[in-house]
Computed example of a mutant assay.
Amino acid sequence: MTLSGNQKRKMKSASRLFAVQALYQMEQTGQTVDKVRVEFLDFRFGEAFEEYDMLEGDTALFSKTLEDAVNYQAPIDQMTDRALVAKWPLGRIDSTLRGLFRAAGAELLQSGTPAKVVISEYVAVADAFFPGGKERQFVNAVLDHMAREAKPEDF
């Protein structure tokens, strides 16, 4: 079966949402990246998330995002801290947002995905976790700052 461009985009979006969930789970439980990755690939992909059918997801993007978020966590966290207001270091923000910034940071630093696509995709992920909240603007502002640092050539 050949997938349309729209289906491929939905699969990538699903993978980004799952990557944030997986990073959150790792932080909360102390589980390893390998254990969480297997759990998500075996049991979570294709699961409905609230009213959204998240398809199967792009397993390669999911796995790479997780690996890169773990392997490059220190530089990603430092980049995120520079984007946050001094009174709100990364350790003080919601753990879901930490996972989101780590996943997005991994894509900004380690993928060829254009910065504006990364920002747009992760703002949509923030909407999924915090519908109607102020987090959308917060995530957009932080990711814009991170993207300008990681991929200045995109601006």
Rank of each mutant, 00 (worst) to 15 (best):
144 D>M: 08
47 E>H: 11
118 V>W: 03
105 G>F: 07
133 G>L: 03
129 F>P: 00
25 Q>M: 14
23 L>C: 12
106 A>M: 03
107 E>I: 07
129 F>M: 02
92 R>H: 09
25 Q>A: 14
72 Y>F: 13
70 V>A: 13
43 F>Q: 14
100 L>P: 00
25 Q>E: 15
93 I>F: 04
145 H>L: 06
112 G>P: 01
142 V>R: 02
45 F>Q: 14
48 A>P: 04
124 A>H: 13
76 I>L: 09
61 L>P: 00
135 E>W: 02
50 E>F: 13
53 D>F: 09
27 E>P: 05
23 L>Y: 05
79 M>Q: 13
120 S>Y: 12
73 Q>S: 14
90 L>T: 09
50 E>M: 12
41 L>D: 09
100 L>W: 01
131 P>L: 01
81 D>E: 12
126 A>N: 01
132 G>F: 01
85 V>F: 04
111 S>L: 01
141 A>S: 10
102 R>V: 08
31 Q>P: 06
39 E>S: 10
74 A>P: 02
97 L>W: 01
77 D>W: 08
60 A>N: 10
143 L>V: 08
140 N>W: 04
51 E>D: 12
146 M>Q: 02
122 Y>Q: 02
121 E>Q: 14
35 K>Q: 15
84 L>E: 03
144 D>C: 05
144 D>G: 13
26 M>D: 04
83 A>H: 02
40 F>H: 10
113 T>N: 01
94 D>N: 15
54 M>A: 03
107 E>S: 08
144 D>S: 12
45 F>E: 07
101 F>M: 09
43 F>N: 15
44 R>I: 14
114 P>W: 06
66 L>F: 06
107 E>R: 11
64 K>L: 11
72 Y>G: 00
76 I>G: 09
76 I>Q: 10
71 N>A: 12
109 L>C: 07
40 F>A: 06
52 Y>S: 05
123 V>Q: 10
37 R>G: 06
80 T>W: 01
112 G>Y: 04
55 L>N: 10
92 R>G: 11
65 T>E: 00
61 L>W: 07
114 P>L: 12
73 Q>E: 14
85 V>H: 09
77 D>R: 13
131 P>T: 03
93 I>D: 02
83 A>W: 02
93 I>L: 07
86 A>I: 06
125 V>W: 01
34 D>E: 15
113 T>D: 03
